[in-house]
């Protein structure tokens, strides 16, 4: 790892095609800054991206990366990390990717608590497919496929994480670039699954959850004097529901990642040229 890594080293030579003003620009910049700030470089970093406008992040960043199928980014990231725990693994995707088609993986990735970070670029809409309701869309949010709104309460991702036993729960806002990068950095530094729900407004298809809305309503937990290690306090904040918090809501300082519990510390890529020396013992077991 070289100490002179700058965040622009994590930029690929592809120019983003996001709509001008899209929240994803800020989200990505913060991720790159946080990676550089935590001493990582592109050669030891693996980024896994979902499918969606958000998922394009995998193609705009420079590192080892895989842009997979819709909703399955977390399992890929877990596989990478378990196979080589020396890598820095970061997974990013949209609210549909993470809380709808991939919701099952979210719950279990939180439970497994592998040491990696997961950034959900939450715009409360399906951007790539041009504006349908997402699992975080408001109940009365009218879209082409939900003319009266979804008529279901939105998922509370922070509560879902809490209920699944999360060791790190945070929320950020892409437009507050400094705080956003700080929060992502903390997620990377966390010893376990660092989950950040990042408000990344869609300027094209969501005229409700806009920059103005978030700017007006967001409350910074730093300013509230919230104790992030207090799970009860975190629970209260998360379940309040009618306030948009920013910051690290919960962090378990005693978190032990799954791979550490399981004693995984080797790079699984290293194998001998033939069967293991004692392999005939495997056969003899069947006597």
């Amino acid at each position: 790892m070289s100490s002179d890594v700058r965040f622009t080293d994590f930029k690929s030579d592809k120019q983003p095609t996001w709509c001008p003003g899209c929240g994803d620009f800020g989200t990505m910049n913060g991720m790159m800054k946080a990676l550089a700030e935590t001493g990582n470089d592109p050669d030891n970093t693996f980024v896994v991206a979902g499918i969606g406008c958000s998922g394009k992040i995998g193609t705009y960043m420079h590192s080892y990366a895989l842009h997979g199928v819709h909703g399955r980014a977390l399992p890929v990231g877990i596989g990478v990390k378990l196979a080589n725990p020396n890598l820095e693994v970061m997974v990013a995707g949209g609210d549909g990717d993470g809380y709808s088609i991939g919701a099952g993986h979210f719950v279990h990735a939180v439970r497994r608590n592998v040491d990696m970070s997961y950034v959900v670029m939450d715009n409360r809409i399906y951007g790539l497919t041009k504006g349908q309701a997402s699992p975080t869309s408001r109940q009365d949010f009218e879209t082409s496929t939900t003319p009266e709104g979804p008529q279901m309460p939105p998922v509370n991702p922070l509560a879902l994480a809490l209920a699944s036993g999360a060791t790190f729960i945070a929320q950020s806002f892409s437009s507050d670039s400094q705080r956003h990068a700080q929060i992502i950095q903390e997620a990377i530094e966390h010893n376990g699954f660092g989950f950040v729900n990042t408000y990344s407004p869609c300027v094209t298809f969501n005229d409700v959850d806009t920059y103005d809305y978030f700017r007006d309503s967001i409350v910074d937990l730093e300013e509230e004097g919230h104790d992030r290690t207090d799970r009860e306090a975190a629970k209260e904040k998360i379940l309040e529901g009618d306030r948009e918090y920013m910051g690290v809501i919960y962090r378990d300082e005693n978190s032990v990642p799954w791979e550490e519990r399981e004693g995984l510390d080797r790079n699984m890529a290293d194998i001998p040229d033939g069967a293991p020396d004692d392999a005939m013992d495997l056969v003899r077991e069947f006597y």
Binding site: F46, V48, Y64, L66, G68, V69, R72, P75, V76, G77, I78, G79, V80, K81, L82, A83, N84, L87, N267, M268, A269, I271
Partner: peptide
């Protein structure tokens, strides 16, 4: 997808 991730990391 986990197996795919592990394989990208170089594991069989």
């Amino acid at each position: 997808n986990m197996a795919l991730g592990a394989a990208r990391a170089g594991a069989r």
